[in-house]
């Protein structure tokens, strides 16, 4: 194998590993019967434009405080920056329609809330230990 091919392979592996580490993991309460959702649907749930899962049970999203995980999730799922989403929530608040989901301080707080709350959905960094919760698959 030529040096250039080895370098290309290493670069691919490195990029792939970076992407794996950067992608947040969406987690739900173990009793949630939905196995996967589309990004659009998950976006609506976190924006409270959709209040139930496909099986009719109540969805209870929990956000994270502003930081790298939230930035990554917001861009990944909403296709928007955190600032844009914050402006969206200001609009919802001052039109008297809704308030944003509660914010958890870190991965552990998200996992604790999701573990205790049927219907809950949150996101954590890729390195978090997912004890007592279930990972939710996302489709485009």
């Amino acid at each position: 194998m030529s040096t250039s091919r080895v370098l290309a392979l290493l670069a691919f592996v490195a990029l792939h590993a970076t992407a794996e580490a950067a992608d947040p993991v969406v987690v739900v309460h173990p009793s949630t019967r939905v196995l996967e959702v589309s990004k659009a649907e998950l976006s609506k749930i976190f924006l409270k434009r959709l209040r139930t899962w496909a099986d009719g049970s109540l969805a209870q999203p929990i956000d994270q405080v502003p930081g790298p995980v939230r930035e990554e999730f917001t861009q990944w799922v909403h296709g928007r920056s955190v600032v844009t989403i914050e402006v969206y929530w200001k609009r919802m608040i001052f039109s008297g329609r809704a308030v944003p989901p509660a914010e958890a301080a870190d991965d552990a707080a998200v996992l604790d809330f999701v573990r205790r709350t049927p219907g809950a959905v949150g996101y954590v960094s890729g390195s978090a230990q997912l004890d007592g919760v279930r990972k939710l698959d996302l489709r485009e």
Binding site: V87, K90, R91, F94, S95, G96, R97
Partner: peptide
């Protein structure tokens, strides 16, 4: 609820 701005007509940041 009337148009884009009526509900937020005084919210300067929006």
């Amino acid at each position: 609820p009337l148009g884009i701005y009526n509900e937020i007509r005084d919210v300067g940041t929006l």
